[in-house]
């Protein structure tokens, strides 16, 4: 096979090893780079993640966006493509963060990849950091693509004031981070890698329908709005509406306001609770593995 033998220098002392262990943050960055490399090589996943929100926007803009079809209070009407853009941004964020992590970690656990990592000095925090880092990069690229298509193909006006972009930045970042940690937590729910898609997809789909992504939120029944307000997607979509719709459109919101304070509160709560649950329930091994 070979004549090369592994280096035969003596093992360092335990204290020297402890002092030279790489920091969890540095390892998180290495993991991010590694996860991104693996992600871009999953060609079907790349195509799906980037095309899905764009295709959905195209479908909704085409079906509902005929000439003269507008939405909003008189004087502040916007075309349907503009109305649906915030929902598509939100759904894209949920797709790249929650759905992709809940499924990919469940598969990694099932295939034994997580168990292998557990046999190394890699801390769980670095593993999660790597996942979150990958999600942030992919989600940013996906959102940028969606906004570019909306602006260039569907002539959706993008905000031109810094205040709205600031709102966009914190809603997007909080939504992506909360979605990512909730995805890590939820990845323990599917019992096998094969069942992951069947378990995760309906959750996302139902949330999309009740949270005002596919329908206008204010036309949903009151009880459905109430149910949706317990989940982050409703707040993420509402926050995005406040960025991409004229300010007058808030009159149509059930509360008559964009509720930025509540949005921030709910997303931060999901981020914190998701982190705690993920840390406490994280499994390196499969359910049936002892």
């Amino acid at each position: 096979m070979t004549t090369t033998t592994p280096t035969t220098r003596p093992a360092p002392t335990t204290a020297a090893r402890a002092a030279r262990l790489p920091s969890p943050l540095a390892l998180g960055l290495w993991r991010t780079q590694h996860e991104l490399r693996l992600f871009v090589r999953e060609r079907d996943a790349v195509v799906f993640v980037f095309a899905y929100p764009v295709v959905m926007l195209a479908i909704f803009a085409t079906v509902f966006g005929g000439p003269g079809e507008v939405y909003g209070p008189p004087g502040d009407e916007v075309p349907f493509s503009q109305y649906f853009l915030p929902g598509m941004v939100a759904t894209g964020v949920v797709l790249t963060s929650f759905q992709s992590l809940a499924m990919s970690i469940a598969v990694e656990r099932d295939e034994g990849g997580l168990k292998r990592l557990r046999g190394t000095p890699l801390p769980v925090s670095s593993y999660v950091l790597g996942k979150v880092g990958q999600v942030l990069v992919v989600s940013l690229a996906q959102t940028a693509l969606l906004l570019a298509v909306a602006a260039l193909v569907y002539d959706v006006p993008l905000p031109d004031d810094a205040g709205r972009w600031l709102t966009f930045a914190w809603v997007w970042a909080l939504g992506t981070a909360a979605g990512a940690v909730c995805g890590v937590a939820f990845s323990s729910v599917p019992r096998t890698g094969r069942s992951a898609q069947a378990v995760v997809t309906p959750v996302v789909l139902v949330l999309q329908f009740v949270s005002g992504v596919f329908f206008m939120f204010h036309v949903l029944p009151g009880w459905m709005q109430t149910v949706a307000s317990f989940f982050p997607l409703k707040w993420l979509a509402q926050g995005m509406r406040s960025v991409f719709l004229p300010d007058a459109a808030r009159a149509v919101e059930p509360s008559g306001s964009w509720q930025h304070g509540t949005t921030a509160l709910v997303l931060v709560a999901y981020l914190v609770v998701g982190l705690v649950v993920a840390a406490r329930t994280f499994r390196w091994r499969r359910h049936d593995d002892g």
């Binding site: 335990t14 090893r17 402890a18 295939e111 034994g112 990849g113 168990k115 292998r116 046999g119």
Partner: peptide, 17 residues
């Protein structure tokens, strides 16, 4: 972690990566 850096583990089955 220090202890984990001193052991090497080759599991019975792994089908990942």
């Amino acid at each position: 972690r220090t202890w984990r850096s001193r052991i090497g583990v080759v599991l019975q089955t792994a089908n990942d990566l």
